[in-house]
Amino acid sequence: MAKEVKKDIPEISVEQKLTALYKLQTILSEMDKIKTLRGELPLEVRDLEDEITGLNTRIEKIKHEIEELKQNVATRKIDIEAAKASIEKYKAQQDNVRNNREFDVLTKEIEFQSLEVELNEKRIREANASVKAKEEEIVKSENALQERTKDLEDKKNELDEIVAETKQEEERLRENAKSIESTIEPRLLQAFKRIRANSRNGLGITYVQRGACGGCFNKIPAQRQLDVRMRKKIIVCEYCGRIMVDQELAGVAPTATETVKETKPRRSRLSSSAE
Results as ranks from 00 to 15, higher is better:
residue 273 S to W: 09
residue 104 D to E: 15
residue 87 I to R: 12
residue 82 A to N: 05
residue 116 E to N: 07
residue 80 I to V: 07
residue 145 L to W: 12
residue 60 E to C: 09
residue 170 E to R: 09
residue 77 K to F: 08
residue 245 V to Y: 02
residue 114 S to M: 04
residue 59 I to P: 09
residue 82 A to I: 07
residue 82 A to Y: 04
residue 110 I to M: 08
residue 24 L to K: 03
residue 64 H to M: 15
residue 209 Q to G: 13
residue 40 E to P: 01
residue 237 C to R: 01
residue 266 R to W: 07
residue 118 E to F: 11
residue 189 L to F: 02
residue 112 F to E: 12
residue 11 E to Q: 00
residue 107 T to R: 15
residue 140 K to D: 11
residue 129 A to P: 06
residue 91 K to V: 02
residue 265 P to V: 00
residue 99 N to P: 10
residue 135 E to V: 04
residue 167 K to T: 06
residue 121 E to W: 04
residue 207 Y to M: 01
residue 151 D to V: 06
residue 255 T to M: 08
residue 92 A to V: 00
residue 170 E to Y: 12
residue 176 N to D: 14
residue 202 G to R: 02
residue 70 K to S: 12
residue 215 G to K: 02
residue 124 I to G: 00
residue 145 L to H: 10
residue 161 E to C: 06
residue 150 K to E: 15
residue 23 K to C: 11
residue 90 Y to N: 06
residue 72 N to A: 12
residue 264 K to W: 09
residue 39 G to Y: 00
residue 253 A to Q: 05
residue 68 E to W: 02
residue 39 G to K: 01
residue 149 T to Q: 06
residue 268 S to A: 02
residue 223 Q to N: 13
residue 76 R to E: 09
residue 151 D to H: 10
residue 133 A to D: 14
residue 16 Q to I: 06
residue 46 R to K: 13
residue 131 V to H: 04
residue 160 D to G: 07
residue 55 L to P: 02
residue 144 A to Y: 09
residue 104 D to V: 14
residue 164 A to M: 05
residue 40 E to Q: 06
residue 183 T to W: 00
residue 191 A to G: 08
residue 8 D to I: 15
residue 154 D to T: 00
residue 111 E to M: 09
residue 227 D to F: 08
residue 91 K to D: 02
residue 207 Y to H: 04
residue 147 E to Q: 13
residue 57 T to F: 10
residue 237 C to H: 02
residue 22 Y to W: 05
residue 243 I to Q: 01
residue 263 T to E: 13
residue 233 K to A: 05
residue 33 K to N: 08
residue 41 L to P: 01
residue 250 A to R: 05
residue 228 V to L: 03
residue 154 D to R: 05
residue 86 S to T: 08
residue 96 N to D: 11
residue 12 I to K: 03
residue 14 V to E: 12
residue 180 I to N: 03
residue 171 E to S: 08
residue 30 E to S: 14
residue 257 T to Y: 12
residue 200 R to L: 09
residue 250 A to L: 01
residue 111 E to S: 10
residue 133 A to R: 11
residue 37 L to Q: 11
residue 145 L to S: 10
residue 220 I to V: 12
residue 83 A to I: 01
residue 226 L to P: 03
residue 229 R to D: 15
residue 27 I to K: 04
residue 114 S to E: 11
residue 87 I to V: 15
residue 260 V to D: 10
residue 156 K to S: 05
residue 166 T to W: 05
